[in-house]
Design a protein around this nucleic acid. Sequence first.
DNA 1: GTATATAATAGTAATAAGTCCTAATAATGA
DNA 2: TCATTATTAGGACTTATTACTATTATATAC
Lengths: 126, 126
Amino acid sequence: MKTKRNTKQRRLVLDAVRSLTNHPSADEIYVYLRRLDSRISRGTVYRNLNVLAEEGEINHIRVPAADRYDFRTDRHYHMICSRCGRVFDAPIEYAEENDRAAEEGTGFKVKCHNTVFEGMCPDCLE
Amino acid sequence: MKTKRNTKQRRLVLDAVRSLTNHPSADEIYVYLRRLDSRISRGTVYRNLNVLAEEGEINHIRVPAADRYDFRTDRHYHMICSRCGRVFDAPIEYAEENDRAAEEGTGFKVKCHNTVFEGMCPDCLE
DNA sequence: GTATATAATAGTAATAAGTCCTAATAATGA
DNA sequence: TCATTATTAGGACTTATTACTATTATATAC
């Protein structure tokens, strides 16, 4: 009966992810939140990001260097710029059928898949 | 004119990746190589893995926790078990057309994409 | 083959993302 | 209002990876 509590810090983290719409990293969220609550700690930010992602309130994006978080909870892909490191949404449909196809023959039980396109963003191409 | 040198250590790292066919991490490669050359250093292993991946001799797989390396240099996808962390090849064709599609409208110049399926491997399903 | 320039190495220190620990705090249900 | 205990702040710790530096050894020139 571990009841999840609705703490001020958890609400702050959720609101931060919803406000920072450019795929912020945990550290960026922490820095942003310190301006609103000068006592919030890094550990609290990381913990609540994990809790909220588990509950499906936000999306955890696994990309090189530092993971990002996304207010969008529908399945979609991302593009990362190899030069500036910024992350963008990709205009590609989630290929649900691949999850089933990947199970065929492998005996795997697939939950989902993550796709990250690598390249150069318009800004970095000059 | 930085000429790449064909050192004993670089050859050892390349041979290791080609011998360890189960998507080893840099540390697993290091541990394996220490048995063949008791003086090889972690830095050397990491550096050569990066050099070899840049040259296209091996493939660098970016997955959570620790990156893996692959003797297969053709583009393909991977599956990771959320329980044991092992990495497998996915029986799905690389969707080349998605790289071009992702450029459409975004202004991105896409080099490639990485897809990782998440789930449970047959062993961990019991 | 020998000398030379410098890429690469071993070993270690440093960095960075993220987790873990503990006493103190505060949200929840009774 | 009170008791329980999930959560917090703050800092220590872990793990993957990179950076630094004196030394070594490879490729090239002689």
